[in-house]
Design a protein around this nucleic acid. Structure first.
Length: 834
RNA sequence: GGGCGGAUAGCUCAGCCGGUUAGAGCACCGGCUUUACAAGCCGGGGGUCACAGGUUCGAACCCUGUUCCGCCUACCA
């Protein structure tokens, strides 16, 4: 293992400066060429740690340092697991089907969807997807994300389409998917139906109008509503059964203004007597409450809004107006007839489409639903079986499930997505599903395997033209990774090996979607949880504490930061936030990261440039060396720090782990240990040879092992030092495949910490004195005078006098009453003499 | 309306299963350059731990309430 003399010249010439620009590129290439992060499916020895990597949607170049933060935080743990000896399954996915991509392409090419064919549009989406993936891949590589890119998938590729379609068939066969004709959430802007998860509530300021209806005997009845434009869709008027004011209306109809039509009066306890006049109009459909009453009480249907969000012919003279225009026109009409009895401004919550912020409407359409309302308990139960980091994030999951109102509508009236593996008989409408063997299938381009309808014998079939919700695919990622859709032996073995997955890292805003839907699918398909651990990251915020996003323009691109400060430094910033906590982006923190890198580099250089050709770190066990008190102290402190780091990494508390490691590295190792021992290298005397050797071995041991602790956080510089120096004495082709330092109990020398404390107090006081005297810290002095009031200290000070002299750069240690400068230990005083 | 997270030095954040004078980095002030590192080293100043109560020998930490910021969630039309 010993290096030859020629290489030794290289060590002496070890670069003074760390050139991260060159090194990071070189190391990245090295990892790729040597397949350092390759998952080994045939490895039967190591345990598997599998990761369900978040697939970012690739169709817009929206990546900012916040994304780097969240990926890095998960990656700290993943790299740690790899060093703990796990066979890591860490794929990279790219989410590129569905609405986000479509919207991106529409915007980029200013597309009018009525003037482009489905095929042309899909081609454009595929093209953008492809180039997007390349941009992402290169960024992830430059950040040092240690995924096995050989395991990549894209949600529009064949495997994902096959898996999504198989999921559909499996659920259909299990009776968990139904086609139903019912009111659904609809985005008039995107012209597609939505699921509850695609709708977010937004505060709008609106007006509550008091509108006069008429009872059959002509009495005015005031009803408050924010949506007068839906008057034409009014199908009933409701009151609370306990409301004595309206008991007289029982069994009667009331007259709807402007439309001169009669609707029945109904009673329901959900009506708040104290809101408005206590009378409420129900339309088909203005909100979820309308849908509920319509279903429960079998109300008439009067649909006045079309799929474009415009009023239709049923609305009479308002036909063709959009909702906003119609509202204005209806109010004007009512005002002319003096039927508006009051207007109150109010702030109310309106459901909007999360991709385009357009208020959603309800329309009636035949759609495919995955039943989820019946199994809320199972999903909550699954949530309890998984370990959440941080734990408080679980509340969001539970809350979401408890508040679910609709089954999961998976039909989308869009182009770019995974098609349903379904045809309908033209005669009788019977559903014809694809055979599993033909997946993935495009029903628009292929015929069903059967040649006649099993129900009516019809021979014509119509393909389902809707595509599936993008989450229909994303929710399958653990099963996509596990090749669940494939029946061969290797796929089955992979499923057994990596599923349930070890880790799901993800962002907090997709708990209700990606996380929830994945649990649904896993429970339904495998009766198992999809993963054991969940890491939820916080957001990257801008300097002012606002969430970074492209639309807000407060966005810091990672490329600039990386080229300015290095990827390792950016990752250092990412480590600053505790998991789940938001983190402001501060360039100063990245600068601090770069400082740490430089310190690591220089500390290593001190060792590297001082070793001699005979150096052999493994000539003896470290505990068999003739260790001084100060050596024992640094080893003890290292082992203690190591233990803390390891415990914290085990509980996904990477932030505290790195802080502990850096504190040890700066305060214990660099500022004190190296400063205390360094002058052994200034003296060429033979009597120093043995001590030099010991010190070099201690330095090698500590610096290599702390480098390993740093490795998950700063993968580039640690690898560079490992390959260019430590690797000459170590086996293994990467620090990231090396084994995490094992805690060595035999290197804990408890009394050394106390004894070193005495030395450190003396050193600190000597530094203060030097500062007071304007004396250079390394300037050699003749004597250090020490006075101690504690007789127990005398023996100790005698024992460590060599280290004291070395530490304070003095020729001699002398006990003397003249020493009068108080140290932090009130029982010790010192003075310095030339 | 309910819930969660946050409020600690000028700035960004640790500490929070109670226990000596509350920490780090940056910024600020003073000093130090042949012997790993000036992108450095040594030293220093700086905080009534959001506010008000309470429990305790002792509270940044536990309890109650309040304010502000952020988020999740919610059928008051």
């Amino acid at each position: 293992m010993q290096k030859n003399t020629e290489s030794f010249i290289d060590f002496k010439d070890f670069p003074k400066n760390y050139d991260y620009q060159t090194v990071e590129k070189k190391i990245s290439q090295y990892w790729e060429d040597n397949k350092i992060y390759k998952f080994e499916p045939c490895d039967k020895i190591r345990k598997v740690y599998s990761v369900d990597t978040p697939p970012p949607y690739v169709s817009s170049s929206h990546l900012h340092v916040g994304h780097v933060m969240s990926y890095s935080q998960a990656e700290f743990i993943i790299r740690y697991k790899r060093m703990k000896g796990f066979n890591v399954f860490y794929p990279m996915g790219f989410d590129d089907n569905g609405l986000p991509t479509e919207r991106y392409v529409e915007k980029k090419y200013k597309i009018n969807k009525s003037k482009i064919t489905r095929e042309e549009f899909i081609d454009l989406c595929l093209k953008e997807t492809k180039s997007g993936i390349e941009v992402y891949k290169s960024l992830w590589k430059s950040v040092g994300i240690s995924a096995d890119y050989g395991l990549s998938y894209s949600t529009i590729d064949e495997r994902c389409r096959k898996t999504s379609q198989k999921s559909f068939l499996d659920l259909y066969n299990k009776g968990l998917i139904e086609r139903r004709n019912e009111p659904i959430l609809w985005c008039p802007q995107c012209r597609t139906s939505l699921a509850q998860a695609d709708v977010v509530l937004e505060e709008f300021s609106g007006v509550l109008y008091d509108i006069e209806f008429k009872s059959m005997d002509g009495k005015g009845l005031i009803i408050s509503t924010t949506r007068p434009e839906l008057l034409g869709g009014c199908v009933a008027v409701y009151a609370n059964p306990a409301d004595e004011r309206y008991g007289f209306l029982k069994g009667q109809n009331v007259n709807v203004p402007l439309y001169n039509k009669e609707v029945p009066v109904k009673y329901d306890e959900s009506v708040d007597m104290n809101y408005g006049t206590g009378l409420m109009m129900v339309c088909t459909w203005g909100d979820a409450e309308d849908v509920k009453k319509w279903k429960e009480h079998k109300l008439d249907t009067a649909i006045v809004i079309d799929k474009a969000g415009r009023l239709n012919e049923l609305s009479g003279k308002f036909n063709g107006l959009n909702v906003k225009e119609a509202k204005k026109a209806v109010v004007e009409d009512l005002n002319e007839k003096f039927l508006i009895k009051g207007e109150k401004p109010l702030i109310h919550n309106v459901g909007v489409h999360d991709r385009c912020a357009t208020p959603v409407e309800f329309i009636l359409a035949e759609q495919w639903f995955i039943k989820i309302l019946d199994n809320k308990d199972k999903f909550i139960g699954a949530g309890n079986q998984m370990t959440w980091h941080p734990e408080f994030m679980k509340a969001r999951y539970d809350e979401w499930i408890n508040n679910l109102k609709w089954d999961w509508n998976i039909s989308r009236q869009r182009f770019y997505g995974v098609p349903f593996p379904v045809w309908y008989c033209s005669e009788c409408g019977e559903v014809i599903t694809a055979a599993e063997t033909e997946l993935p299938v495009d029903p628009a381009a292929n015929s069903p395997a059967v040649n006649k309808c099993p129900k009516c014998g019809g021979k014509e079939f119509k393909p389902e033209t809707d595509v599936m919700d993008t989450w229909m695919t994303s929710s399958m990622t653990p099963l996509i990774n596990s090749r669940w859709a494939y029946g061969d032996i290797e796929s089955k073995e992979l499923l057994n090996t990596i599923y349930p997955m070890g880790l799901r890292p993800q962002a907090q805003e997709i708990i209700r979607t990606w996380l929830f839907y994945t649990v649904v699918k896993s429970i339904y398909h495998t009766e198992n949880i999809p993963f054991k651990n969940i890491m939820i990251s916080g957001w990257g915020l801008d300097k002012n504490g606002k969430k970074m996003s492209k639309s807000l323009g407060n966005f810091v691109g990672p490329e600039d930061i990386i080229s300015k400060y290095s990827a390792d430094a950016l990752r250092y910033w990412a480590s600053k936030a505790n998991l789940g906590q938001d983190l402001r982006f501060n360039e100063e923190d990245v600068v601090a990261g770069r400082k740490l890198l430089i310190k690591i580099w220089n500390a290593a250089r001190f060792l590297i440039t001082n070793i001699s050709p005979e150096f052999d770190p493994y000539e003896k066990n470290i505990s068999d060396l003739k260790l001084s008190r100060i050596d024992k102290w640094v080893l003890t402190e290292f082992e203690n720090a190591l233990k803390v780091c390891e415990n914290n990494m085990e509980s996904y508390e990477y932030s505290f782990a790195l802080r502990t490691a850096s504190d040890f590295f700066y305060n214990i190792y660099c500022d004190n240990y190296l400063e205390i021992i360094k002058n052994v290298f200034w003296d060429e005397g033979e009597e120093n040879a043995e001590r030099k050797k010991t010190v070099l071995n201690v330095m090698y041991f500590v610096s290599l092992n702390i480098l390993k602790v740093f490795a998950p956080f700063m993968p580039f510089i640690t690898e560079e030092l490992y390959l260019s120096f430590y690797g000459n004495f170590e086996k293994g082709k990467s620090i990231h495949l090396s084994i995490w330092p094992e805690f060595k109990k035999e290197l804990i020398f408890s009394d050394s910490v106390k004894i070193a404390g005495i030395l450190l107090n003396i050193l600190e006081a000597s530094r203060k004195l030097r500062t007071n005297l304007n004396l250079h810290q390394n300037h050699r002095i003749g004597k250090i005078l020490i006075q101690t009031l504690n007789p127990d200290y005398i023996g100790i000070i005698n024992e460590i006098s060599g280290d004291i002299m070395s530490a304070v750069r003095a020729e001699r240690v002398v006990f003397s009453d003249k020493a009068d400068f108080k140290t932090a230990d009130g029982d010790i005083f010192i003075s310095l003499e030339k």
